[in-house]
Nucleic acid binder design. Sequence first.
RNA 1: GGGCCUGUAGCAUAACCUGGAUGCCAGCAAAAACUGGCCAAAAAGUGCAACCGGCUUCGGACCGGUUGAUCAGGGUUCGAAUCCCUGCAGGCUCACCA
Length: 567
Amino acid sequence: MANFREEIKKALKKHIKSPITLEIPPDPKLGDYAFPCFSLAKELKKSPAQIAKEISEKLEKPKCIREIKAEGPYINFFLDKTQFSKTVIHEIITKKNTYGSGKEKSKTAIEFPAPNTNKPLHLGHARNMLLGESISRILEFSGNKVYRVNLNNDRGIHICKSMVAYSKYGNNETPESAGLKPDHFIGKYYVLFSEKAEKIPKLEEEAAEMLRKWESGDKKTIKLWKKMNTWALEGFSQTYREFGIKHDKVYNESEYYSKGKDIVLDCLKKGHFTKDEKGNIVAPLEKHGLPDKILLRADTTSVYITQDIALAKIKQNDFNMDKSIYVVGSEQNLHFRQLFRILEIIGFSQAGSCFHLSYGMISLPEGKMKSRQGTVVDADDIALKMKALAEQEIKKRHNLGKEELKSRSEKIGMAALKFFILKYEPTKDFVFNPKESISFEGETGPYVQYTHARICSIIRKSGIKDIESLAEKSDFSFLSSGQESAIISLLSRYPSKLKEAASSYKPSAVARYLLDLSQAFNEFYHSKQILKEKQETRNPRLILALCVKNILSSGLKLLGIDAPDKM
RNA sequence: GGGCCUGUAGCAUAACCUGGAUGCCAGCAAAAACUGGCCAAAAAGUGCAACCGGCUUCGGACCGGUUGAUCAGGGUUCGAAUCCCUGCAGGCUCACCA
């Protein structure tokens, strides 16, 4: 496809010396490509409109071009639509579900969602999981090898807080006896701790004491920790399943947190780090334009970043990857700038290939979500609600058996949730309003799914099993008019869209594209018939519909969303 | 206070990295073309909400239409939502928390 563009440039080069950039006009009626003449105006001392006119008259028409038209200050190029349609459709049909895929060959590790094991996952984690999974899929589709890794932050004072609350007020209750999902059960005690600690300040000390016991390997403490940790992780894995994510490797902070200490002490000897007046080991970052960072407390206990340094090396050892992505919220921007700089200072050769994929905060209309106060949108709850909503919508339209109803509402409800979150650019903060909830109309996952299901229905009704095979004999000049060619032009841009999404880590670009494509198809659908047409018109239209369907399902898959045949 | 980020209609989002106009009105059954007039470096796409309209039709979770926006000021440029500066507003952060 790219050679259409090149051919135009080649023709222009014969008359223009300066570098040539082609644009795509805002309206397809104006042409498929345009060359703006403004930049030449100064040099030639003529008005851009005049230049456009003159050049267009001299221009030799490239083969793929049907018409060249000077329009104001632009030279507009109209592709030979029939040939273009044929090329695009042929490519989609022959490449099948690899259309748009790339040949990059690098290895990438991507870490998400790295939860704390003291409370259930909330909407922020949902964004994290969805971004992580979608970017993994997009990178894989670009040809890369992707390793999904998770990190459980399973030790530390926050974990001990839930443990203290449980041992004091738990009465040996279990998730089963309480009738709670196990991670929600843990979360209940985390909230309880905060409530009680407000009145009983001594509890904070007890938590600190619990941590010391944990670090010294006290058997009773470890036993309790294991029990509660297992519950938390059990709950998480249900949520992961719900959101469709799997990891290739899981790291537990508890297993390697002491390794960071060795590295830091070693680097202190090498002179990379210094000690402050209190005896803390500090990374001097001032001269790098960052605040100094404490790496190890004077009492030699480690802090968060100590472990990150160790894990960066461990991961590199395990996967020998070319790129290491951390999917973590924007609140930790500074932390990662410091971490990457420190890795550089200590001579970690892969420091430059680390990347913090930072995403914006989700807040509620009332303000920030706070786990301790229980003012969070829980990930499991919202998933449940979306499915229930989807079920209602389906019931309005169909009378289905239990199984089918359940399966469809899962697909549609999760699509609504996933698409809603992924259509935002990762860096943008957004406000989630639970009362207004997530819509099923307009720019939504179900809208894209609906377009897909609708096409499936047409294909079913056509009774033709192998629509692809019609392509050979079809005349694609029937697709040269406005709406059809607008669709084809969109189809042709899918590969470059995916490239953009992969290089900028933006699933939102895919989501936008799918909306545009769905919209273009639905407009076409409403003004043109397919099945009732005679064969010569019907066949190309059917093929076009099939191509749209395939790309919708391919794109949805990259967002981690199912494309059902019926809904 | 310092650092980083973000300001697009009632709300939300795209275009921003890489700066880009092909307009408006009338006539014709008519989008385009055509004819006549206007302007002379004219100008922002989409969704929700609101309002108007479209199903004996290949699936109305759809489609068409109306209304409505680049935070303020300056600079660079033939041209700025986009680049630069200042101001204002908001978010995050500046832990021996994770």
